[in-house]
Nucleic acid binder design. Structure first.
Lengths: 342, 342
DNA sequence: TTGAAAGCGGTACCAG
DNA sequence: CTGGTACCGCTTTCAA
């Protein structure tokens, strides 16, 4: 109201200013701001609130973090937040975190273990209260972190199989993948399905590969060929091209992510092959894109929302006792497998 | 080496521990950690480094932030990080920020002005060093922030037209949109193009709408119909259905985002209409998806990488003097407009 | 070249 | 119910 622009320090009011204006101690200001830990009389509290209002006082989160030892922030390490599934997952994690008063600091690794290591360290240096890691490559430094210094809770998200000594949350990738391969083999009668999947870090560790293998075994079929390629549309496209140019071109393929599957669709189109007519495709994720591509993808659904809620809950609980949360993956039938529209 | 698990405090070593072990003062530890502001003799520095190594000491970023008044963090407010373009843009911003030692805290608003306001406040409370805002709705509270308390630099990203008093970075949406509409009108000879665009907050404020309008004006054509719908695949799909069921079904449409365009493609497919045969579509963004959908989209390219670099640079410079950085949008010709493959 | 000490903005315990 | 005050971990000025 008055010419207070000149009076107000550019740095913003601190709890000291508030205390002075309200004629109380800083402790009292703290009590009313946080509703505790000591009670404050009505009138006093009112004076404090007035002062806060008048000064436009906002508590300094950094100072609070230093004092209480919690930043109300959780770190998230993902390979590539640009991938439609991770984008959605990250979004859900953020929503879930926000709902309980936490912020999420995201770090992309680009599937590079070195970057991943650096990311984990950076995040920890920022005093995050918990760490969510997708893309399990960097387990080594995660372990080390857990050992030395601040013992911050870590939960591995997006792991296909429960990992010893860590709390994990992820889809039942084995069952989910098997479900789509079964569908290809059983209801559509393909002799086998090829597999398009990511880098060969540790074949067999990936639940998607195992599900694919097991489904073939159960059906008594010989395994189809496998193509390894990056988890991206472009990666899927290239693998698709390779696959579809083979002399023994497969009639069905299970692709380990929607992004790659979109690339496969593109490759088929370019080669003039019809999907599902000449190539049936099943996929994994059920990201938004899978409903809108052509043809829409039959895919195993990752319940991102539920997993996100679980991951946030788990990491905030502190990961004291390792637990393994696995989520069922419903089969979402659309047209890429050969089923009629619907 | 020894049984130091018992010795090492669970809280992690502090600079005090390091100082004690190295037999120096905490100031010296600070000097060697930060390479300044005072010089330290070789031997002393070596002792300190040893101590750091031995204790596995990691500086506490929070404490540092409190002391120096900078969190090395910049806030980013976006409507929906799940949208393919924003996902990519956010990714680029993160990359650019990381390169200069900053982290990015993302907040999604879901296009809700109330949420947006809360987000901006939350971010500021976290003592971010700068704020990037996409989706200009929340200008009011941004202005207010700039006025009271900590004067944090704000840059508006993703604005189509330079905004008074703020530093902005964005594509030349008017020219870019006009470029694709021109293409539809001139090279493919359509009488006019319909427009699919987002919420009607302030028609005319959106550069895409203006570009579309101006292109028609220049060509001496009557404007096509406009459909307003959310910026999502689903939104585009619904708008597409509405548009394509009209008696006076348009022969060409300019869609204001790739995500919506993908929805339009889906709608056309569902109605058995061929693109570009019966409907030519031009779009905006050039996200990865636009290369892989069917048919691939002719679109105006947002130079996300360059814009991200500029945005980070600008916000870090402090936004002292408002500047308006606008980026050209190249036309990317693919097949959805009717041009031959290539 | 190094040490002592005064903050940065809050929190929360201990007295009163 | 409230005030005084010792931290939280690090930075940086001032003296030595």
């Amino acid at each position: 109201m008055t010419a207070d622009d000149a009076v107000r320090p550019r740095a913003g009011a601190t709890r000291n200013d508030v205390a002075r204006l309200a004629g109380v101690s800083t402790a009292v200001v703290s009590y009313v701001v946080n509703g505790g830990p000591r009670p404050v009389s009505g009138p006093t509290a009112a004076r404090v609130r007035d002062a806060i209002e008048q000064l436009g006082y906002r508590p300094n989160t950094t100072a609070r973090a230093l004092a209480v030892g919690s930043t109300k922030t959780i770190g998230l390490v993902v390979p590539d937040s640009t991938n439609p599934f991770f984008a959605e997952y990250a979004w859900q994690l953020q929503r879930a975190a926000t709902e309980v008063g936490y912020a999420v600091l995201i770090s992309n690794t680009g599937f590079d273990p070195v970057v991943e290591e650096r990311s984990v360290l950076d995040l920890c240096d920022r005093q995050i209260d918990g760490l969510l890691v997708a893309g399990a490559s960097g387990l080594r430094q995660v372990d080390e972190l857990t050992r030395r210094g601040r013992r911050i809770p870590v939960v591995l998200i997006d792991v296909s199989s429960p990992l010893h000594g860590h709390t994990t949350v992820g889809p039942d990738a084995i069952a989910g993948s098997a479900r789509v391969v079964d569908h290809l083999l059983d209801v559509h009668g393909h002799a086998s399905a090829a597999l398009i999947i990511g880098g060969s870090a540790d074949p067999g560790a990936d639940g998607r590969e195992r599900g694919w293998t097991e489904a073939h075994a159960r059906a008594g079929r010989r395994l189809g060929v496998v193509e390894r390629t990056p988890f991206s549309r472009q990666g899927g496209y290239e693998a698709g091209l390779r696959l579809l140019r083979r002399d023994d071109r497969p009639t069905a393929v299970f692709v380990s992510s929607d992004a790659q599957a979109v690339g496969v669709l593109h490759a088929a189109r370019e080669l003039g092959l019809s999907v599902p007519g000449e190539l049936a495709v099943g996929s994994f994720d059920d990201s938004d894109e899978s409903r809108f591509c052509s043809p829409p993808l039959t895919t195993a659904r990752q319940p991102a929302r539920a997993m996100a809620d679980a991951a946030i809950t788990a990491v905030l609980r502190g990961g004291a006792t390792p637990e393994h949360l696995v989520f069922e993956m419903p089969l979402v039938v659309r047209r890429s497998c050969g089923c009629p529209a619907g």
